[in-house]
Computed example of a mutant assay.
Amino acid sequence: MELRNRVFLLLGGSGGIGQALIQPLVEAGSRVIVASRHPKPMVGRADGVEQVSLDLAAPDLPRVLADLSKAYPDIDGVIHCAGQNIFTGIEDLPVAALDSLLSVNLRSAILVAHHFVPRFRRQGRGALVFVGSTFGSIGFPGYGVYCATKFGVRGFSESLRRELADTAIQVLYVAPRATQTSMNPTAVNELNAALGNRMDSPEAVAGEILAAMKSDQQRRYLGWPEKLFVRLNGILPRLVDRAMLKQLPIIRRFLQSGVSS
């Protein structure tokens, strides 16, 4: 997709990946409306960047999106990279946290499309970019609800892309592997180290997202061997089951230590 003279609504702009996307988008010629629950000062990034407050967990999110859309009628692309995560056994997951994960990670993505697809149809073009996760294809112990939401985002974006295949609206799904963001507490980073999981920087992930956008890709999975496990899990899930079983004692040790985020 052409990035020059585009206006993107960036959801989750205060997070690691979202922050890393801002400057490359501006340098590519885009104007960026950065939406986050608690906007932070952005020194040196005034040109081509505007900030708005947006709570993706708001019960009245459809109304909030409608108001935002009226205020910025030239938006012709949305990048949804907002997300919440928690690492815990299902029996230790507070219901409030479960509801928040569903609202921010999945419900908001669906409502964003629900609002912007009709508008993009009228405009004759538009782009919806959903940032998912490797855990949107591989269920991982301790991340049950997070995986469920990311599985949902992956399935929704795939369905939406096929629904809009005969329109000028582009739908892209990008699935990063473990990323070094503030969403991960120290103990979770230690878990990844113990399992030998590589972690990408937010800047590296942002670069992959921009590359996928520029090349008109429909889906992009990041990291090796994670991409291999995604394919294996799709055709031979028992092999991944066995690999996870070998890792389970390490994972359970961290679960029992009360690791969460």
Rank of each mutant, 00 (worst) to 15 (best):
Q170V: 14
A148I: 00
L21Y: 06
V34M: 06
S103E: 15
S260L: 09
P94E: 05
G44S: 10
G15H: 03
I86L: 08
K40D: 13
Q256M: 08
L164G: 06
L65H: 08
D74E: 14
A58D: 06
L228V: 13
L248E: 09
M199R: 15
V43C: 09
F135C: 08
R252Y: 04
H114V: 02
M213V: 11
M199P: 05
V34R: 14
I235T: 13
V129N: 07
G258Q: 05
Q217S: 14
D92F: 09
G152L: 08
R31V: 09
F254N: 03
D76T: 02
L255P: 05
T186M: 08
R219A: 14
V131L: 12
I209Y: 13
V129M: 03
R162V: 14
P176A: 12
I79C: 05
T179W: 11
R37T: 05
A82S: 01
V78H: 02
Q19C: 11
S133R: 03
S53T: 14
V174L: 06
A127E: 15
M42K: 08
D76I: 02
G142C: 07
E190S: 10
P237D: 10
S36F: 04
L3R: 10
V205R: 07
E50P: 00
E2T: 13
E163V: 11
R242W: 11
W224F: 15
F120A: 01
Q247P: 00
L160T: 03
